[in-house]
């Protein structure tokens, strides 16, 4: 390069124009205090509710209807011992994951395919909304006719529920992609494929993640509803079977297992979603 044309100071622009970065020197409490408080609060609340339930069951509430935590725990232990719990949970888990995976993948693929064609998206939109608004429970009888009462029927029922949520959120996510960013990538010489992979996919990620997140409970709902409607296995079956024999402890035990499954799946998706959060600045005010 030739000598600088007008420069009088020489070298690169002064770095004094960037904010100063320095170690924050946070104490353990400043760093983890909030998290500790929140988790302590959560555990205390849970414990309080369980104790309250245990105490009220009997003197105030009829244990025949509400059971009691100790009975539920006993039932869980019993089920774990004789293998009941594992057999039924495994079936429900397979239905949930199968349905979720099937629904999420088809939802995303269809979402991207439809959203990339502007007119197609507009044509299909009202139909999708109409189908989306149909209560999926109403499909259960039809699915029994089509697929029987086995695993398949539950997986498909869960998948249908998941599909619409993921599909609609993916389409919305793709639509929200900033036109300026797409143009910028085109200016840099991106091909159609590169645009999709390097721009459209990550830019719509927030929308897709939202869809994936809100769809999780619906995979559970789909699977359990399928089991409640017709089946002889799974946690849904355990619930309906226990209820039919007035075994409320069994109902609650199955519900506890369902909640645990839901919490675990939620955590998995949260970890995925944390990537998107990193785009936003993390502001920490040391107190």
């Amino acid at each position: 390069m030739t000598t600088p044309a007008v420069d009088t100071s020489g070298g690169a622009p002064s770095s004094g124009s960037t904010p100063l970065e320095e170690p924050a020197n946070l104490t353990w409490w400043q760093r983890y205090g909030d998290t500790t408080i929140i988790w302590t609060g959560r555990l205390t609340l849970l414990l309080a509710l369980v104790v309250l339930w245990e105490l009220l069951s009997g003197p105030v509430l009829d244990p025949l209807f509400v059971s009691r935590p100790s009975d539920v725990a006993e039932r869980l232990v019993g089920w774990v011992g004789d293998g009941t719990l594992w057999t039924h949970t495994w079936i429900t888990v397979r239905e949930i994951f199968g349905g979720y995976l099937l629904g999420a993948v088809t939802g995303m693929v269809a979402g991207f395919a439809v959203a990339s064609q502007r007119n197609l998206a507009r044509i299909i939109d009202p139909f999708m909304m109409a189908l989306y608004s149909v209560p999926k429970v109403a499909l259960a009888p039809l699915f029994i006719v089509w697929f029987g009462i086995g695993l398949q029927m539950k997986i498909l029922l869960a998948a249908v529920m998941v599909f619409f949520l993921v599909f609609l959120n993916t389409v919305a996510g793709v639509r929200q992609v900033d036109r300026g960013i797409v143009d910028a990538a085109r200016l840099m010489g991106a091909s159609r494929r590169e645009l999709l992979i390097k721009v459209t996919l990550p830019a719509s990620f927030t929308g897709v993640i939202t869809g994936l997140r809100v769809a999780i409970p619906y995979a559970l709902i789909g699977a359990v509803i399928g089991e409640l409607v017709a089946s002889n296995r799974g946690l849904g079956y355990l619930i309906s079977n226990s209820a039919a024999t007035f075994d409320t402890a069994g109902v609650f035990a199955a519900l506890v297992v369902l909640s645990v499954i839901a919490a675990v799946v939620n955590m998995l998706v949260d970890m995925l979603g944390r990537r998107t959060d990193r785009w936003k600045p993390l502001e920490r005010e040391p107190s």
Partner: peptide
């Protein structure tokens, strides 16, 4: 006919990829 890599364009809007 369309954008080309040999022409660089700095638009007025901010188009950095946020992710």
């Amino acid at each position: 006919q369309g954008p080309r890599a040999e022409v660089g364009y700095l638009t007025q809007d901010d188009t950095l990829l946020p992710w």
